[in-house]
Design a protein around this nucleic acid. Structure first.
Ligand SMILES: NC(=O)c1ccc[n+]([C@@H]2O[C@H](COP(=O)([O-])OP(=O)(O)OC[C@H]3O[C@@H](n4cnc5c(N)ncnc54)[C@H](O)[C@@H]3O)[C@@H](O)[C@H]2O)c1
Ligand SMILES: NC(=O)c1ccc[n+]([C@@H]2O[C@H](COP(=O)([O-])OP(=O)(O)OC[C@H]3O[C@@H](n4cnc5c(N)ncnc54)[C@H](O)[C@@H]3O)[C@@H](O)[C@H]2O)c1
Lengths: 236, 236
DNA sequence: ATGTCTTTGTGAACGCGTGCACAAAGATGG
DNA sequence: CCATCTTTGTGCACGCGTTCACAAAGACAT
């Protein structure tokens, strides 16, 4: 019965479709660039080009937020930056913990784009006692046993997992038990979490395999017909 | 205009839907784990649970590859591993170059899961002359000027970009000009590429923002009604 | 004030992806 | 050889997401 209620019907509530939510950060990035160049307004056409999407889609996306454009003119850049930021919840601070400070975890800790948008690294955690106390990106690595206390003290609701795959589920369970309700998983494993906890995954290996599929397909079509279907009428 | 023809109409040709292609690596991973435990066959129900998907979806996905199951029994693990590997193009070697050997690029170079599935790091490239020759994950960092020669000599068709955002488009153009037709982009920028070149992006910042949106939404609903719509009849 | 011109906001059509539910296939046991 | 039981493969319906195309809105000039 648990699988029955799994996929929530998009983002009903006030009703911003999931696909739209996924594009808002893209728009925000493009708008921020315009804002830095002191551009006052932008049309859906221009902004769509900058974000790499269809302009009708962009307008429909914005229509879910309300009517923030002016016909004949376009959108006010600053106002839109604010509205999208607010909608995404970026006007508040989000404390984040990173678990697993190896190659990847250290790179993530050093990532500047992290802090720039309301995400603050509250702590770096690792099971390796030898790492404890070492400074990474200016922060001391704390032992994993401190997880529960750190999450509680800092009201952390977002956790990033960069441990080996074998440890990911265990770390997840501890994070969730401690109160974390959003997880970004870099380990190549399927995580089980209770209802109400969101998991998003970043999987390099999967991305490469998808590219390989299309690559193989291109190589195949190259010496066959470009439609890739039936060989039809071979020339001679 | 590269942005015009961006989304191809799924994977028509012989016709494996794009959504299915994206799940095949997931199945492959689960199957590989079963294979290592010498499990001979697996039912769609079991495998679906391991991959975290609906069993009907899994069966439909496999049906696009052909009828590889046996009714009343399930799927032969080894056979399926081979079929999916072949379909994804993992039976051949894919030389890959990584451009930008900073925090992230170095972590990627050290990533074990890279080589495990037919992806071979052909070279590490960076614009910083000071890095040239330094060993990262056992490979010497080469100067970016060698890009064209390396791509040609090794027949590289997949490039990974881990440079700062400002350099990503320029690197992309050089990669494409040199013959690369698939790009995995970690830099937070929209890349323009000509038709026939695939780009996939991994964007930590976007993932976090999506999580923040849902997190904010959860926090809001908590103290309102759980349906999130009209406040209806507030209990006094 | 009126007309023109630009650009938004959205109705409507369409296609893809998902999941239910079941008939057909085939294994297994007697 | 037949009955039973398990599990696949898929027809079908439904909902989400995308795109087209256009009416309405408003800026701006005269
Ligand atoms: N390096 C990459 O570029 C890359 C890319 C994609 C995916 N990944 C995945 O990210 C994860 C980390 O990769 P990495 O290269 O940094 O590995 P790594 O071995 O360098 O680092 C893993 C770290 O996790 C710590 N750890 C292990 N068990 C732990 C536990 N139970 N609790 C807390 N910390 C624990 C280890 O002490 C170590 O410091 C792996 O799952 C890997 O598959 C890495
Ligand atoms: N570090 C992370 O966890 C992380 C996460 C998400 C995204 N990113 C993105 O990945 C990219 C790299 O991040 P990083 O933390 O490794 O940065 P970094 O500054 O540590 O490394 C960037 C490297 O790229 C090299 N470089 C610069 N211009 C180049 C060019 N034209 N050609 C070749 N090489 C060039 C630099 O010499 C440097 O070695 C950035 O775009 C960043 O936004 C990083």
């Amino acid at each position: 019965m648990a699988t029955g209620r799994t996929h929530r019907p998009a983002t009903r509530g006030r009703g911003i479709p999931e696909a739209t939510v996924a594009r808002l950060p893209l728009y925000l990035r493009a708008l921020t660039a315009l804002s830095e160049r002191s551009v006052p307004t932008v049309s859906s056409e221009e902004l769509a080009a900058a974000a790499g999407v269809n302009s009708a889609k962009l307008r429909k996306d914005f229509s879910y937020l309300g009517s923030y454009g002016t016909r004949g003119v376009g959108y006010d850049v600053e106002y839109l930056v604010y509205q999208i930021s607010r909608e995404l919840g970026l006007t508040q601070d989000w404390p984040v913990v990173i678990v697993g400070i190896g190659n990847l975890g250290a790179a993530l800790a050093n990532y500047g784009g992290f802090a720039s948008r309301g995400f603050r690294v509250a702590a770096l955690l690792d099971a390796d006692a030898g790492l404890a106390g070492r400074l990474v990106a200016g922060l001391p690595v704390r032992h994993i046993d401190e997880l529960e206390a750190i999450v509680a003290d800092n009201q952390v609701s977002i956790g990033v997992i960069a441990t080996p795959a074998g440890a990911a589920q265990e770390v997840t369970d501890r994070l969730v038990a401690a109160g974390v309700t959003s997880i970004l998983n870099f380990a190549p494993t399927v995580l089980s979490v209770p209802d109400g906890v969101d998991v998003r995954k970043v999987d390099l290996s999967i991305e490469l395999q998808i590219l390989a599929f299309h690559e193989q397909r291109k190589a195949g079509e190259e010496r066959q017909d470009p439609d890739g279907d039936v060989p039809a009428v071979m020339p001679a």
